[in-house]
Design a binder for these strands. Structure first.
Length: 109
DNA sequence: CTCATGACTAGCT
DNA sequence: TAGCTAGCCATGA
C-alpha cells in the first residue's frame, strides 16, 4: 500500500492539524506530496462531506479565511476557530508563524 | 482543444 | 496593510 489517492493524502494532512492550530492550503498540499496544488486542496475541501474533518483549521497563506467576508462559511469558520482558542480578528488569524511552527512541531519538518 | 471558474500564491507597488 | 498582476492546477462546458 502506498500511493493512496491524492485526495486521501490531502484529507490525512488536514486531519493531522492539531486542535487550536492552523495551516495553509499550500502547506497541506505540500504535506500531501502535491507541491503547488493548493487549489486542489481547496477543491477537496469544497466537496468534502466528512463532518469530522477539521476544515476550519485551513487558511490562506496570508492567514485569512478563504471565504468571502460575511458569508456563511466565513462566520462558521471564525466561530469554530475561536471555539478552539484561536484569535480571529477581522477574518484574519492571529498566530505568529503558525505555518512554520506547524511544520516543525507537528510534522517534524 | 479552448475558455471560464475557483475555500490559491508570490511578487511588486 | 491593501490592491493589482501573473502564474498555477483540476474540472467542466
Amino acid at each position: 500500500m502506498e500511493p493512496a489517492s491524492a485526495i486521501e493524502r490531502i484529507l490525512a494532512a488536514i486531519r493531522a492539524v492539531p486542535r487550536g492550530e492552523v495551516a495553509g492550503y499550500g502547506h497541506i498540499a505540500r504535506r500531501a506530496g502535491l507541491p503547488g496544488r493548493a487549489r486542489m486542496v481547496a477543491r477537496v475541501l469544497s466537496g468534502n462531506e466528512d463532518p469530522g474533518l477539521p476544515w476550519h483549521r485551513i487558511l490562506r497563506s496570508d492567514g485569512r479565511i478563504a471565504f468571502p467576508p460575511g458569508s456563511r462559511g466565513f462566520k462558521e469558520q471564525a466561530k469554530r476557530l475561536r471555539a478552539e482558542g484561536v484569535d480571529v480578528r477581522d477574518g484574519r488569524v492571529r498566530m505568529p508563524r503558525a505555518d512554520a511552527s506547524i511544520d516543525e512541531q507537528v510534522w517534524g519538518m
